[in-house]
Design a binder for these strands. Structure first.
Length: 323
DNA sequence: GGCCGACCTGTGAG
DNA sequence: ACTCACAGGTCGG
């Protein structure tokens, strides 16, 4: 490994953080290390009790940087997570319960362009297809960073590449469906608005104004805009209200919304405001912890199935890997 | 301003 | 094998 950061595993859980619906490019390898891309590098991460061990591969034309600092920024390691958990637990017994299992969930600070186009793909879509679409964008339009374990890794494409007119046809052929048009058009608009300067403005604007700006892009409605605000623009009070969050809200906090026909703008804002009133400025973070509790991927693990008895049905042809 | 239906396509449960 | 609802929603009427 290239380096290590002294950081307890109790305050960063890579599994919950990477599989909690924030990012779509991280993969867990058989030796329990994680491999993924950000900051123009291929990262291999491996934790032990005390340290985050890391290895970073970059292309020859990528400038040197303090790579530990890049990790600290990406994982927001300077945020005292245990203290924050304590605060949120005081505000909310439901959080307190979820926090017992979901420790070390960190809001990543992702790259806005990647975040924007990933979440345009996410709408009305399933996780595995979202992942494959993101990888397609990277291999089609991203530059190769390097090879690790005989696998090529690509950077997320620059926005100018996604704005090209040929992208529409390419992505339609690659089965992107109606999102092909959203991607090409959104990229064009971002370039038109000023590219990275526009992105940087969004970070400086107040949350609600940044959200309005984002919603000028095709394929970005309230929910996706909130994902982007929360995950890559440092607006941690954003609460993306999707089907899962709606379920959580009606089950635990706002039962009167149980039989609304659809999540209208009014309902959407009521749910977000409820979380913000409860938790304050960082509301999106504890929301993310609660969200983990709703995800299928984190349920029914053999050691802790206590949710639904009917899921104890015998599984056919289930092969268990023995390591 | 709120509500409703259509929407590309792959995945996974039945 | 073969449906068919659904997937971290958005858009236009």
């Amino acid at each position: 490994m290239d380096g290590k950061i002294k950081f307890p595993i109790s305050a960063l859980n890579l599994n919950y953080t990477f599989n909690g619906g924030q990012a779509f490019r991280w993969k867990c390898l058989e030796d329990n290390s994680w491999i993924g891309v950000f900051a123009h590098r291929i990262w291999k991460l491996r934790q032990d009790e005390e340290y985050i061990n890391f290895e970073a591969v970059k292309s020859s034309n990528t400038p040197e940087e303090d790579e530990a600092a890049l990790l600290i920024d990406y994982f927001r390691l300077n945020e005292p997570l245990n203290e924050l958990y304590d605060e949120w637990a005081k505000c909310d017994p439901i959080f307190s319960e979820a926090a017992k299992k979901f420790t070390g969930v960190r809001m990543l600070r992702q790259e806005p362009i990647e975040n924007i186009f990933t979440f345009i793909c996410s709408s009305n879509n399933n996780i595995s297809r979202i992942k494959s679409m993101v990888e397609k964008m990277c291999t089609f339009y991203g530059s190769e960073i390097g090879v690790v374990d005989e696998v090529k890794y690509y950077d997320f494409p620059v926005v100018e590449n996604l704005a090209k007119s040929s992208v529409l046809n390419d992505l339609q052929k690659a089965a992107f469906g109606y999102r092909a048009k959203f991607i090409q058009q959104a990229a064009s608009k971002i370039v038109e608005f000023g590219g990275h300067d526009w992105i940087n403005e969004l970070k400086k604007l107040p949350y609600d104004e940044a959200k309005i700006e984002l919603m000028k892009l095709p394929g970005i409605g309230a929910k996706v805009a909130d994902c982007i605000c929360l995950m890559s623009l440092d607006h941690l009070e954003a609460i993306p209200v999707d089907t899962h969050v709606f379920q959580i809200a009606t089950k635990y906090y706002l039962p009167h919304l149980k039989n609304v026909k659809s999540v209208t703008n009014r309902v959407y804002n009521e749910i977000g405001d409820h979380f913000r009133t409860m938790y304050g400025k960082y509301a999106g973070w504890p929301h993310c912890v609660l969200f983990c509790g709703e995800l299928k991927i984190f349920q029914d693990s053999p050691t802790e199935k206590r949710k639904k008895p009917e899921q104890l049905k015998p599984k056919k042809h289930k092969k268990t890997k023995v390591s």
